[in-house]
Computed example of a mutant assay.
Amino acid sequence: MTLSFFQKFWSVLANDIMAVISSFFHLGQLLTAINHTFISLIPKIPNPSLVSHYRPISLCNTLYKQILDNVMIAHDYLHFLNGKHKGNNRLMAIKLDMSKAYDKIE
């Protein structure tokens, strides 16, 4: 389900989602189904006959794949790199545009 689905039906889903997240912080356990990913093969051409004629697409659960989490991780990583500039041991980060590297379905 997409983020727009969760936004549209947040009034219905909010209590259940917040209960799952709260139980994670109190018990340290998360429902295993949240971590499941489905892989689907999308045909690249009409009437595909070989495996190479398909494009694999990962369908991740939206709760598991939150963009905000990635932003926070990137922020923490850049903050760490900013403090590591002593001597000849230097670190760097490279920004990649992953939307150009992979096909996507929206």
Rank of each mutant, 00 (worst) to 15 (best):
G28R: 15
V51W: 11
N35S: 15
G83I: 04
P56A: 05
G28S: 12
H36A: 12
H36D: 12
H85G: 08
V12W: 02
K84S: 07
N82F: 08
L96N: 03
N88M: 09
L13T: 09
L41H: 08
S52R: 14
T2C: 04
A33L: 13
K44N: 10
P48F: 04
S58E: 07
V20F: 02
A101E: 05
K95Q: 05
M98L: 04
I42M: 10
H36V: 11
F25L: 09
K86S: 06
R55S: 06
K104I: 00
A19D: 08
V20D: 01
S52Y: 00
I21S: 06
V12M: 05
H85I: 09
A33W: 15
K65T: 00
G87Q: 14
A19R: 11
F5I: 05
S40N: 07
Y54F: 14
M72E: 04
L31F: 10
Q7V: 08
S99N: 08
C60Y: 07
L50C: 12
P46R: 12
I45G: 07
D16W: 03
Q7T: 13
P48M: 10
L30D: 11
K84M: 10
P46K: 15
N15H: 09
S49M: 15
I67K: 13
L50V: 01
H26T: 13
L41D: 02
K44Y: 01
R55W: 02
K86N: 08
K8L: 09
Q29T: 09
V12N: 06
M72Y: 00
I105T: 00
I67C: 06
T2E: 00
F25E: 06
G83C: 02
I67R: 12
Y102C: 02
F25I: 05
A14N: 10
S22E: 06
I34G: 11
N88A: 15
M92L: 15
K44L: 14
S11A: 15
Y102L: 07
Q66S: 13
N15T: 03
N61L: 03
H85P: 00
S58R: 09
K65Y: 01
H79T: 10
P56H: 10
N47K: 15
I45M: 07
F9R: 14
Y77R: 15
L50I: 02
K95P: 02
T32S: 12
A14C: 09
F38P: 00
N89G: 06
K100P: 00
D97A: 07
K95M: 08
F6A: 09
L3V: 04
N70A: 11
F25W: 12
I17R: 08
D103V: 01
H79F: 05
N70H: 08
